[in-house]
Amino acid sequence: MKTDINNFEDIVWFVDSFYRKVQSDDLIGPVFDAVIIDWKPHLEKMYKFWNAALFGIPGFRGNPFARHAPLSLKKEHFDRWLLLFNKTIDDQYEGSMANETKRRAQVMAEMFLERLENMNGGAGKVIV
C-alpha cells in the first residue's frame, strides 16, 4: 500500500530513486554525468532542497537555476526529467504531499525552461 510523503526519510528515498533513473536515462543521463563527478554532494543538496520546499525546514543554500543555466537544456530534457520524477513519486507514494511534490517539480521545470529560453532570446526572438 502506498503512503504519502511524510518526512525526510521519504525525501531521501525519492531523491535517490529518481537520480538512479536519471543516471541510466539515455537523454538526460549524459547531461548530468558531464557536470556531476561525485553524486553524493549533489544528492545531499537535493535532500535539503526538497526538505525546505516541502516541509519548510531550513538548510538548503544555493541557486539551482544558476547551476542549470550553462547547460544545453531544451524542452525535451525537462519533459524527460518530469516523466522520470513523476514516475518515481507515483511508484511509491500517493496523497496530497505526493501531488504537491509533483506540482512543485512541474512549476520548477516550467520556470527553468522559460528562463533558459528568455536568456537565449526566446522562441522566435532575435537578440542583436
Rank of each mutant, 00 (worst) to 15 (best):
K2Q: 08
D4S: 10
D4R: 13
D4E: 09
N6G: 09
N7T: 08
E9I: 06
E9F: 12
I11G: 15
V12M: 08
V12P: 00
W13L: 08
F14D: 08
V15Y: 03
S17K: 15
F18H: 03
K21N: 05
V22W: 00
V22C: 02
L27R: 11
I28S: 03
G29K: 02
G29M: 00
F32C: 02
D33Q: 12
D33G: 03
A34Q: 07
A34R: 07
D38A: 05
W39I: 05
W39T: 10
P41C: 05
H42N: 01
L43M: 08
E44K: 14
M46T: 07
M46G: 07
Y47D: 09
Y47T: 07
Y47W: 11
K48L: 15
A52Q: 15
L54K: 10
F55A: 10
G56D: 00
G56H: 01
G56R: 01
P58S: 10
P58Q: 08
F60Q: 00
R61M: 10
G62C: 06
N63C: 04
F65Y: 13
R67Q: 11
H68C: 07
P70R: 05
P70K: 06
S72R: 08
K74Q: 14
H77C: 02
R80W: 04
W81R: 03
W81P: 00
L82T: 01
L84E: 00
L84N: 02
L84P: 01
N86Q: 08
T88E: 13
I89S: 05
Q92T: 13
Q92H: 15
G95V: 14
G95M: 14
M97D: 09
A98F: 10
N99F: 08
E100G: 08
T101E: 09
K102C: 09
R103E: 14
R104Q: 13
A105I: 03
Q106L: 07
V107L: 13
V107Q: 12
M108H: 05
A109R: 02
M111W: 10
M111Y: 10
L113Q: 04
E114W: 06
L116E: 09
E117S: 09
N118W: 04
N118F: 03
G121T: 06
G124Q: 05
K125C: 12
V126I: 15
I127G: 02
I127A: 11
